[in-house]
Amino acid sequence: MLELLKQMAEITAVSGKEGVLRDLIIEQIKPFAEYEIDPLGNLLVRKKGRRKAKNKVMLAAHMDEVGIIVTYAEKSGFLRFATVGGIDPKVLIGREVVFENGTRGVTGLSPVHLLKDSEKDAVPEISSLYIDIGAENDEQALSAVPLGTRGTFREKFEYFGDGLIAGRALDDRIGVALMVDIIRSEIEYDLHFAFTVQEEVGARGAAAAAFSVAPDYAIVLEATTAADIIDVPEHRTVCALKNGPAVSFMDHSTVYPMELYDLAMKVAKDNGIKAQPKAAVAGGNDAGSIHKSGKGVKAITLSVPCRYIHSQNCVAAVQDMESARALAEKLAAELANA
């Protein structure tokens, strides 16, 4: 799983441009399952288990990552952009940027020396930020990076501290890596998998994927905010690293069936797998689209806790990935045979 995460860290797959990542996933799973690509670009996979499933269970993880899209070039050669997905402007200033075509740039800022005191701690609007690729004028800039080109934080995947990993887009490359790993292994019951597009711009791919697969149950594998950092009171941390996957009961896009929440926690306990509640009503993910699809789908989300999510440095614990993988597999088997 970690080797695959490292490989994926080299790939830029901002929403709507997930193709390169999808190709890598296909290469990984091809010998182990059947697959198809739907009109939106979702990768839908069927994997045979040792036994036939009573219920259709779909696992889902999104391929896309947050980033930026180029909207305008100044005469002076600087590029203006919009964010794709939610990026806090606070983590976007003075950063290396890599575009999908390999061009590099940096997000610029006025030198702190020339700022008035009142400006020194003011967070700028995204619309006032710009990217410098070294171009001398708009023509040069656009020949290297045409309008609509997507970019994101520079590549990174590193082991960090004690048993942690750090890098960009662990949301949701972690979910992708977990699913690929399950597909490459032997499983108990038949399962469906959706590697989705456009999650970061409104969980759009998942809506189409869930319609096509029409599962009875869905397990969304995600990364979610962990605020277990200094100065944050414990009741505001949402979840903490090294306590296992966070199981959702409600977020901003889904009210989860409590029987699935209870079942996930029970399966974790019965199998000695670490798990924790996602102790906040915050965020949203593909489950928001999936549970409303077709005649309705019972969905649950298992998220690997991740600090500084949607920045160039997401931080997650390797042991939480392992726990999430174990819980996802056991829970899927349970639901398939329910």
Partner: peptide, 10 residues
């Protein structure tokens, strides 16, 4: 290696 903390927007 270190990473400066960033408080989640929520």
């Amino acid at each position: 290696d270190g990473i400066v903390i960033s408080t989640p927007p929520h």
